[in-house]
Amino acid sequence: MRALIRPGLVVLSIAGAAACFAVAAPQSAFAQAKDQAAPAAPAQPQELKQVALTDKQVDGVLASQKEMDAITEKLPENAQPDAKVMAQLDGVAKKHGFASYDEYSTVVDNIGLVMNGIDPATKKYVGSEAVIKSQIAQVEADKKMTAPEKKQALENLNMALKAKDPDIQNKGNIDLVVKNYDKLAAALSEDMN
Rank of each mutant, 00 (worst) to 15 (best):
S134W: 03
T146Q: 06
D142T: 12
T122G: 07
D102Y: 01
E129L: 11
S134A: 15
V131Q: 03
K123S: 00
D142A: 14
K150E: 05
I136N: 10
K150D: 08
S100V: 06
V126K: 15
S128T: 05
I111Y: 07
Q135L: 06
A99W: 05
V92Q: 06
Q135A: 09
P120M: 04
A121Q: 09
L113V: 04
M159H: 05
E140H: 03
T106V: 04
V92E: 00
G127Y: 05
P120F: 03
E129M: 10
Q152I: 07
K94L: 03
K94S: 00
Y101E: 05
V107P: 00
G97Y: 08
D102I: 00
G117A: 06
K151V: 11
S105L: 00
H96Y: 13
A137N: 07
K143E: 15
M159G: 05
K143H: 10
A99E: 11
A160V: 14
H96I: 08
P148H: 03
A130M: 07
L113W: 12
A141K: 04
T106R: 04
G112N: 06
S105M: 01
K124Q: 15
K151E: 11
M115E: 10
V92W: 00
E149W: 08
S105R: 04
M159T: 09
I132C: 12
S105P: 04
K133G: 14
A153T: 04
P148W: 10
P120C: 14
D102F: 09
A137W: 08
V139L: 06
L113P: 00
S105T: 09
A160K: 07
L154T: 00
A93T: 04
K124L: 10
F98L: 06
Y104S: 01
Y125K: 02
Y101F: 15
K144T: 12
K123G: 09
M145W: 10
G117P: 02
I136F: 09
D109F: 06
I111E: 02
E149Q: 14
Y104E: 05
K143T: 08
D109S: 13
D102Q: 03
G112C: 09
Q135M: 15
K144M: 09
I111H: 03
K95C: 09
M145L: 15
H96Q: 12
A160T: 01
D109L: 04
E149M: 15
A121Y: 04
L154V: 09
G117I: 03
K133P: 12
M115Y: 00
L154G: 01
T146V: 07
H96L: 11
A160E: 01
L113N: 13
L154E: 05
Y101I: 01
K144S: 14
P120E: 02
V139I: 11
Y101N: 03
D102S: 03
T122K: 07
I132Y: 05
